[in-house]
Design a protein around this nucleic acid. Structure first.
Length: 569
RNA sequence: GCGCCCGUAGCUCAGCCGGAUAGAGCAACGGAUUUCUAAUCCGUAGGUCGCAGGUUCGAGUCCUGCCGGGCGUGCCA
């Protein structure tokens, strides 16, 4: 947890400093947050003192509790076994925590720790001429969230959609088209393209000659054969149109769309440099970088027919991007199956003495698993992302019609609820884990879901709408004396460190989990405490400020995840 | 074979630098709506944290081995 901003920890450290004869920062790093409310607000585990002094930590904690006098915002110091527990002045805590949210508003949780640093993100990266399946949701939404998290921390970020628009697969497409389709290329739909792709893989299993033909066709494409290039451009244009529609639905806009083909004329230079550095060697007819000394299989640069490979394109892309953006870090949001690939690419760049190679990160993620059959694009078994999104929107419509039939902005609300549900369902899983794909679960709107967060946000908006007046600046937050109000304020104060941790670890799920906790505590508070009370205007104003802080935190968090907060649903 | 990731309640998952009594949701059961949106809330029940060792004052968390699952392991991306 990030302690630098916590003024209470600072106070505790100062209190302890003289007695323990330690530096404040060292003490601060030892302070913990107890799990249970009755254990105090902060705690110092005394085991390390016991060890140092060869004494029982329980005794030490008791002694310290006797010696130390509460001061400032620290109201009570008590020993509980080997722990020294600190209780803060709740009024002070609530005031500071809520004040911080209200003061910073839409930038609550943001900071400038990343100022002056550039972060390049490579994410989404769907393959041209393949359907945009549910599998590509992960890279897209995780990458988008990681980008937003870093934006919030002051980094300059550049998102790159490294489209899979080059490689042997396009040889397959061209062969399949020529062999089985009699339609002019410009009339082909994406689903017909996919059908060709599937057919190619089915047939090529029985007839390996097809694969040779595909490789030859890609070689020709790479050499610039006009007929092949024209077909490829046709396939690509159709796919891009389809992708754009899906990105619009998701609300994701990636700064730069440069496919692998963009590096077609840049790979030669990379290979030249690798040869000059003595790294590229020939082996079994192919050009490789031998990585045996680094415990890895060789990195393949050129196939024996001279055509390029995935690694060749990533190497050229990395060099080009460094030249262009001078990034401090570049994060690849790609599946965990590519781990070795990136390890190899990073190592080769390191061997080429590219200092910046140390700033390269593979933020890998696990995949959707399917209960029954194994999904495979090649076999034509896939769940289309668009289908999932549309089902979610339909379901949202059904529920809205039932619960709030007079809603004005129904189309937009249903879209935001449905899409938000899908995005949140994905982002609530820890990045590295595989996730079970389950229609019931991904389309659930109850419990730990996107709609649950939306609902909590909507409820606050509804309270504010009903009140209808602005809250005065002289609100007396000292009236927020309920236990639940203190706990809620504590939870809100955790938002900034959560964002930092999520960005550091490239782990949006930390934000998801956190937001669920905020919404849960708020919902519980909402049931038990009425906000609007004409008979008690001061208390009403104080509670309105508290729930406004909750709304702001939820809204900021949802936006970081790429979900649009709603005021009605 | 070797390498990487994962294994926590019936199911799906949280669990921070190793710290106090391992937490949620779903499903099940029982309650709550004259009151700010019940897409909600409250309660009950549900655990040998895959197994076996080790390190430590202390292990779901670190180390070793094994078991189970996923992925990778030279001309796909």
């Amino acid at each position: 947890m990030d302690r630098s901003l916590d003024t209470f920890i600072k106070e505790i450290a100062e209190l302890l400093g003289t007695t323990l004869q330690m530096r404040g920062a060292d003490i601060a790093s030892l302070i913990e947050r107890p799990q249970k409310a009755n254990q105090g607000d902060y705690a110092l585990p005394c085991f390390f003192l016991g060890k140092e002094q060869g004494r029982n930590p329980v005794e030490i904690a008791r002694e310290l509790a006797d010696q130390l006098a509460p001061a400032g915002s620290i109201e009570k110091i008590a020993a509980a076994g080997p722990y020294l527990n600190f209780f803060v002045n709740r009024i002070a805590f609530v005031g500071r925590a809520i004040g911080a949210v209200i003061k910073t508003g839409a930038t609550y949780g943001h900071s400038t720790v990343g100022a002056g640093q550039t972060l390049v993100l490579d994410y989404s990266s769907p393959n041209i001429a393949k359907p945009f399946g549910i599998g590509h949701l992960r890279s897209t939404v995780i990458g988008h969230a990681i980008k937003k998290l870093h934006d919030a921390l002051g980094y300059k970020t550049i998102g790159i959609n490294h489209l899979g628009d080059w490689g042997t697969q396009f040889g397959s497409m061209i062969v399949a088209y020529k062999k089985w389709s009699d339609k002019p290329a410009e009339e082909l739909t994406v689903s017909e393209l996919v059908a060709l792709y599937v057919k190619f893989h089915a047939e090529s299993e029985a007839d390996p000659a097809l694969q040779d033909a595909a490789r030859a066709a890609f070689k020709k494409l790479e050499e610039g054969d006009p007929e092949h290039v024209a077909l490829w451009e046709r396939f690509k244009a159709d796919s891009l149109k389809e992708f754009d529609r899906i990105y619009d639905m998701l609300g994701v806009h990636i700064d730069v769309a440069s496919g692998e083909s963009f590096f077609n004329d840049k790979m030669g230079g990379t290979i030249k440099r690798l040869k000059a550095a003595g790294l590229a060697t020939e082996s079994e007819g192919a050009l490789i970088v031998d990585l045996e000394g680094h415990g890895m299989p060789p990195c393949l640069l050129l196939k024996s027919d001279g055509a390029t490979l995935y690694a060749t394109r990533d190497l050229a892309a990395a060099e080009y991007r460094y030249q262009t953006y001078k990034f401090d870090r570049m994060v690849y949001v790609h599946g965990q199956e590519q781990k070795l690939h990136f390890k190899q690419v990073f190592k080769v760049l390191e061997l080429l003495d590219r200092e910046w190679a140390h700033g390269l990160v593979h933020a890998e993620f696990g995949h959707y698993r399917f209960k029954d059959a194994k999904m495979s694009t090649r076999k034509g078994k896939t769940i289309l992302l668009e289908e999932v999104l549309n089902k979610a929107i339909e379901l949202a419509e059904k529920i809205v019609t039932e619960k709030n039939p007079d809603l004005e902005d129904k189309t937009n609300v249903c879209r935001a609820v449905g899409i938000g549900a899908i995005i949140f369902a994905d982002l609530s899983n820890r990045r590295k884990r595989d996730v079970e794909f389950d229609w019931d679960r991904i389309l659930s709107f109850e419990g730990e879901t996107g709609p649950y967060l939306q609902y909590a946000h909507v409820r606050v908006c509804s309270i504010e709408r009903k009140w209808g007046k602005p809250i005065g600046p002289d609100t007396n937050l000292e009236l927020l004396t309920e236990e639940a109000e203190f706990q809620l304020a504590k939870k809100l104060a955790d938002f900034p460190p959560t964002i930092r941790r999520a960005a550091e670890q490239y782990e949006p799920s930390l934000v998801s989990t956190y937001l669920l906790e905020v919404a849960r505590e708020f919902s519980s508070y909402y049931e038990a405490h009425r906000v609007l009370n004409e008979a008690a205007p001061d208390l009403t104003a104080a509670r309105l400020t508290l729930v406004a802080a909750v709304r702001q935190t939820l809204a900021n968090g949802l936006r970081l995840l790429g979900i649009e907060p709603l005021s009605e649903m």
